[in-house]
Amino acid sequence: MIEVQDLTKTYGQVTAVDHVSFSVNEGEILGFLGPNGAGKTTTMRILTGYMPATSGTARVAGFDVFQDSMQVRSHIGYLPEAPPVYPDMTVASYLDFVLRIKNVPSDKRRARIDDALEKTKISDKRNELIKRLSRGYKQRVGLAQALVHDPLVIILDEPTVGLDPKQIIEVRNLIKALAGTHTIILSTHILPEVSMTCDRVVIINKGKIVAVDTPQNLTTQLKGGQKIHIDTQAPENPLKDLLKGIPGANRVELSPARSDGHITATIETASGRDIRSQIASGIVQKGWPLYELRGMNMSLEDIFLELTTDDAAHATPSN
């Protein structure tokens, strides 16, 4: 349904999107995950025909986003970061306006509006002026706007921003319900959102794709690998040598010893190996006291940080 090939966008010296390629199958929900300024919005804007790419191609529903922009635009529903609503219109007249500029014939408009209001659960706000609605309701009007013309592809830029926890759950359920009949791309920097709603995740950082996979695969891929946290009292270098010497320990990070002699370390292990007992016996054999030994599964956050931060920033273990 969506094919992106070598998409690049530069603003003067800055490369916002750097040779990005991915594809989305029909009926799939693709999560676009990345820190702020990673190029998520730029990629989405290119897909919606809002702005052209510097190079590369993108096809939506078989149409090139640049050459057949009009066809692409009539097959796309788009919710930008801020809902594009007119405050002095009522919800229904706003949706009617959207249907008009999407070229939906007049005999279908009424039913489409009812449907969109129903799906986003704002039927009771139908004749309310948009400026009188709360942030959460405005966001839902924005969502209704993106799906009101029943497009093939729905592109949502941070759809749950500004909603309260209950509304977030409702919106996620709505998005899941839309999949199958619609192909959806959503961007977010909230990790649980991706694992809860998306079929596949594209992790993007500094304009480049760093990973594409299902949320499950991404988690299990690194879940096999464990992080082990220890707290002991030992001289720094011998401790490091000991830990590194244990087979299966991939990476060892020591924090500097505190004034009371305590030293903590984080050990990342290769997948499928549990080396906790080796660590414990190794430390005890040396006669060092062991205060704490704890295994931590790597979450999607760790993977995300792993993939999107430099090694320098990685020195502080996340927990």
Binding site: R45, T48, M70, R73, S74, P87, I101, K102, Q145
Partner: peptide, 14 residues
């Protein structure tokens, strides 16, 4: 200012 220009520019309208 409102960002509604994004709606107009991504709709099939010249």
């Amino acid at each position: 200012k409102r960002g509604t220009i994004e709606l107009l520019m991504t709709s099939p309208i010249r």
